[in-house]
Each structure stands twice: as C-alpha cells, then as structure tokens.
Design a protein around this nucleic acid. Sequence first.
DNA 1: AACCGTAACAACCGCCAGCTG
DNA 2: ACAGCTGGCGGTTGTTACGGT
Length: 318
Amino acid sequence: MRASMLSVTKRMCNSGEEESELRRGPWTLEEDTLLTHYITRHGEGRWNMLAKCAGLKRTGKSCRLRWLNYLKPDIKRGNLTPQEQLLILELHSKWGNRWSKIAQHLPGRTDNEIKNYWRTKVQKEARQLNIEANSKMFLDAVRSFWMPRLLQKMEQASYSSSLTTLDSQAGHEVRPPPSNSTVPSSLSTLLCPPESKLAHYSNPDGSENSSSVASPYVLSTNSNTTTLQPEILENPTYSPLHGDPVYNNLIWSDTCCEEGSSYDMDGFNQASAGMGTYENSPLECQMAEGNWVFDSMEDSLWNMDDMWQFRDLRDTGI
DNA sequence: AACCGTAACAACCGCCAGCTG
DNA sequence: ACAGCTGGCGGTTGTTACGGT
C-alpha cells in the first residue's frame, strides 16, 4: 500500500464542532473487522453515525460502499457464470446503465461488479468491433453472436455435468457431445437457422449482397434504410427453447423475477424463437466441428468468424 | 529479471432524490 | 416552501495482478 492511498484528509465533521481525520484508500483488516462487528450487532443504516460509533475514521459513504460491495456475507465471489452474463446482457439491453437495477436480479452480485464487468469485457468487445457499446448495432451483434454462444456454453456445462453425474454413478468415460448430435431441445441445434435464413440486403446501387451471418435477426429493407430486426415466426408464441430446462432456468428462475413482479424478456425470447428448430445447417456443422465451444477464445464474446461476419455487415452499410 | 500493457477490481466523486425539521 | 442531511446511483480513477516481450 502506498502512502498516497493511505492519505488522511482533514475535514470538518458534519457537526462542525470538531475536526477529525478521515482515512481514504484501501481498507485494512482492522477496519473491516470493526465495521463487520458493528453492523452485526446494530444493523445497517445511518452510515455517518455508524462510522463514528464504530470508531471508524471513514465517511459514512465509504462504510456503506465497503459493506455493500465487499463485506456483506451474501456477496458472491468469482467469475460471472454464462447465465449471469447472459442476464446482464439482456437486462442492460432493456434498461441501459441501471446497474443497481440489474444487480437486483443477480443475487450476490453488486452493481459495482456488474459495472466493472460491462466496462472491462463488454466495452472491450465493442471497441474490437469499432462500434459503440450502447448502440443498437452492438446490441444486435450481442444477440446474434454472443448470446447464442453463452447459451451454448450453458448447454455444454449442463451436458457435461449430467455426464459427470452419470459417470460417477456408472463409472463411464465422459465424452463431449457427438458432433452431429441433434438431440431434441439441444440448444446448439436450435441456435442455427437454415441457409435460407441468411441475411440478404441491397446495396444503394441496387446490387444485392448476401451475408453468411447466421442470425436470429433478419435484414429488413425499405426504400431508405436497411435495418437488422428480430425475425418473427409465424407462431410467435412458440419457442422451441421453452421445453429446455436450461432456458427455463435462465428465464424464469428466481434470479430473474423480483418478488411479486417479473420483467418481460420479449427481445430475448423473440430472438430465441427466431432461431428455429433447424437441424444440420451449415453453421451448425461449423459449430459442431469444434471452434465455437473449446476454441482459443474461450473467454471472448464471439470468435473471429463472428467478428469478421459482423464487420462485413457493418462495413457494407447496415 | 525487468519492463510494459492490460484486465480486474476497489474505492472515490459528484449528482440527485427523498426525508425531516 | 425551504434548507440541510442522508443514502443511492452512475461515472471515473487509481492500484494491483498478471501475462507477454
């Protein structure tokens, strides 16, 4: 710890009667213990008074932040799960930078953590695509590439854990899913539209382009603009994912629904529904061949193919 | 081993809304 | 109605850890 971070600031107390030294910078173990013990005995709230009574030379704000973001017993540590990441993406697309609101739907995660995740991971990916993280185009990219990828990770994890369970019960060797697996309700099957769904769009000069981007979105062109929109199926209420336990767990688990209320997941459900139940599409084969799940960009939001496909779309004026 | 760039995260700051006297 | 205080929120900054060269 550096002296600069342990600087002590002379400030007037709220009472104005005395001048006290307020500490800043990283909290010490001793301070953490004091704060934790005090809150355990007396509860939260009245942070300025709490700071004084607990004998902490910190502002009430600082105490509150330390408790909520670090010391509170139910704080969850470690990397965000794919489910949590997916939820963050969807909720952010709905609410924007309402970090505390988003955090309410992720038990054990703080608004600060979610905010940091967004800034370090999501905005980084947006920079790589050279588009604004808050733009509709980036949202489209997220829904078209990243969300399916996360869903696939979730499915993979679910599949592995079920195999692990079977393995532990029967002593079987654990293998990855077969590359041409088309198990009903398999997400990797559901995520790939057929070739006929690939995007087509017109250039300003009237010539036609087609994109190999496989997406739950379709390109809609009118006389002036070309937009990327969620594909609406003939029966919009049907989603093949609704029978999938992973999907249901993601969408309807307690983490998604406030007590006595819920939020709609229209955009996400729509995107999911648009993915269809197509089997053995070209892209499915590409995914099944391996570079989607266990590639070297495991922690990236999408792989290089995704990025180039999206850049093609962007650069051609969508 | 040293240096550098970057990711991750903790902490602070400023603003604002709600409450209270 | 107004002022002051408090807590909450989002934005930003600073530090540390880590990996690559």
